[in-house]
Design a protein around this nucleic acid. Structure first.
Lengths: 152, 152
DNA sequence: TTATTTGCAAAGCGTTTGCATTGGG
DNA sequence: CCCAATGCAAACGCTTTGCAAATAA
């Protein structure tokens, strides 16, 4: 009778940190949890606002995020026109793409994505080994196209 | 016998500027031409390096780009992890997507994209009117996967 | 114990803003 | 002519860096 152990995202993170000779520190765990608690991509600034209240340093948030990107725990995304946000990637959260409203800026996640075959075809020929994809559909959301809304 | 006039990108730009009550100025034309001369997305910094030699002010480049984004002449894209670059959009240049090498950072444009049907399906249900899409495939290019290259 | 990580403060630098001048319509 | 656009310089704010103290392993 085998007992299938639960493997949490945090366990995977710990493992991945150790494998790369990075230490498992409270700061890294806190940033990770903060990322988990957000559905949409978040800026460093937003994370810091939440975490510095608990005594975590802003510089540390930057450094932790740098490590997370290097270890493919999180990746950057463009929010709006100039802002870079971060979000967890697989296996820390399911893969998804974005529907971005160009009027109000709202970002909706799309989890159902039947693009894998088509995307694989697109990458053929160049000899690329595709690791992940990111699709952004820009348009106007239902709400903004109904009311005469002109901005956030 | 009708004479089909050629309509250049610059003509369309002029028209679009006038329609929005923006003036057609040398600065705007120069930034536009600079964008046209680049195949890949370029940073403001790069544009400025090219244009300030000709006496164009850095601040002006920022302001022109702001106008271009507002008028949907150009749009921002994430280059690498932290950098925002800009490129012209349709009809100023044909729509395309990106193949990004995560090792060397090289960006290859993909012009053949059979995703329109699939993307339309993805956006259904939310009531979004999709204006354009942006697909990024991240992976390792042929060169980087053959030699043991570890970064730019 | 030892190398990594963190906190703090200062430096760095890309971006924005104010205002006088220039110039497009 | 008038209002928008530009240039210039200063202000701003995000990000990075250096170094000493704290701490994971």
């Amino acid at each position: 009778m085998t007992h299938q152990a639960e493997v949490s995202g945090e366990d995977i993170l710990r493992q991945r940190l150790r494998d790369a000779q990075f230490r498992v520190t409270p700061g890294r765990l806190r940033v990770f949890r903060a990322l988990q608690s957000h559905a949409a991509p978040v800026t460093i600034q937003t994370l810091a606002d939440e975490l510095t209240e608990d005594g975590l340093n802003l510089t540390t948030v930057y450094r932790v995020m740098e490590a997370f990107v290097a270890l493919s725990v999180a990746h950057p995304t463009l929010i709006g026109h100039q802002t870079v946000g971060y979000e967890l990637v697989e296996p820390f959260r399911p893969h998804h793409d974005h529907l971005v409203c160009s009027v109000c800026g709202q970002v909706v996640d799309i989890y159902e994505c039947g693009l894998n075959a088509a995307l694989a075809a697109m990458s053929r020929g160049g000899g690329y080994q595709v690791e992940f994809h990111q699709v952004e559909l820009h348009g106007v959301c239902a709400e903004c196209s109904s009311d005469g809304n002109h901005g956030v």
